[in-house]
């Protein structure tokens, strides 16, 4: 067991998989010599060399097209899109090509590939380098969508994503890169589509993802001081979506609060809420509350960005609105 940063866990996870499987190759902008713009891939080039690690031009379509073509012919590429905002310039390859080709070809084509991307706000980078776009990805049939919140989950879920036979979008929350956590020694392989129950409490079920997980835990701590004990679930994966864990918890608590960094409209919490409302309505003892970034682009100024993103106060307030 070693303490490791979320940032270092990325390189650790990539190296674990590249060591295991020679068909895993890694490509993207500044990922090799520079060690990644977030320093999340430091050392990978030194370990595996230029026959497996490829610095690319700023050509997001060419990066993801190369990953797709290689995946359909026997390789298992891991591609990086530096900022998830840049998915907008290569969304055709993601949404029209990678996501749909298995279906359109009646299962002839298999695309075992991973697209990692720095996602989310908190860095004061402004509206084009701060978005949380996991809900874009979730809306496209054919993709799997993962967003870890801890260093251990980075390693385990990345391994699961690389070994999965479907294309996986792997969102690394930029505001978590500096956070640290325990990572067990040896190979770690997790499972896609399995939420983690991080805290148990009878008053309400708070479901969060990625950078919203530590905030939800902090809110739970504050509520506990008032005698309100809530359950906190880290969803970890949007596709597959672990409805069972959430529904089981809601059946006990009677309250659901989602905490989403993505802007409100069509965020993942809306889908989760609709499922619970449709299938578990009579378990509910209060309104479902969604705590989200409002339907705005993210502003750059720290004061404004902090006001836009869900924070502990808003989560606490959201729980109160459901339980009271």
């Amino acid at each position: 067991m070693a303490e490791m940063s979320y940032r270092d866990a990325v390189a650790h996870g990539i190296a674990q998989e590249m060591r295991r499987d020679p068909s895993v190759v890694f490509l993207g902008e500044d990922i090799g010599s520079a060690g990644g713009v977030f320093k999340a891939t430091v050392g990978v080039l030194d370990t595996f060399g230029r026959t497996r690690v490829f610095d690319t031009p700023i050509s997001e379509q060419a990066i993801l097209g190369a990953a797709m073509g290689a995946a359909m012919t026997g390789m298992r590429p891991v591609a990086e899109i530096m900022f998830s905002d840049f998915f907008a310039v290569c969304w055709d390859i993601v949404a029209n090509e990678i996501a749909k080709t298995r279906y359109m070809t009646n299962g002839q084509v298999t695309l075992p590939l991973v697209i990692r991307s720095g996602n989310g706000g908190g860095s004061r980078f402004g509206a084009q380098h701060s978005q949380s776009v996991e809900n874009w990805a979730m809306a496209v049939p054919g993709l799997k969508v993962v967003a870890p919140s801890t260093p251990k989950d980075v390693v385990g879920l990345l391994a699961a994503a690389v070994r999965d036979t479907d294309p996986v979008l792997f969102f690394e929350q930029k505001s978590l890169y500096a956070t640290k956590g325990e990572v067990p020694d040896g190979e770690i392989v997790d499972e896609l589509g399995k939420a983690s129950v991080l805290r148990q409490g009878p008053a309400a079920t708070v479901v969060a993802l990625a950078a919203m997980v530590p905030r939800a835990l902090a809110a739970a701590e504050r509520l506990a001081q008032e005698g309100i004990e809530v359950t906190v679930i880290d969803l970890r994966s949007l596709v597959p979506l672990d409805v069972t864990t959430v529904a089981t918890s809601v059946a006990r608590t009677g309250h659901l609060i989602t905490v989403e960094e993505n802007p409100r409209l069509c965020g993942w919490g809306a889908e989760l809420s609709s499922i619970i409302a449709e299938e578990n309505l009579f378990d509910l003892d209060g309104p479902i509350v969604r705590v989200t970034t409002p339907h705005v682009p993210l502003p750059a100024a720290d004061a404004l960005e902090d006001a836009a993103l869900p924070n502990v106060d808003r989560i606490v307030d959201g729980v109160r609105r459901s339980v009271l």
């Binding site: 379509q61 073509g69 012919t73 590429p77």
Partner: peptide, 13 residues
Amino acid sequence: GAHLTIANGAAWS
């Protein structure tokens, strides 16, 4: 245009 990038991937492979 998309498939030119994908064809590159097959050639790369």
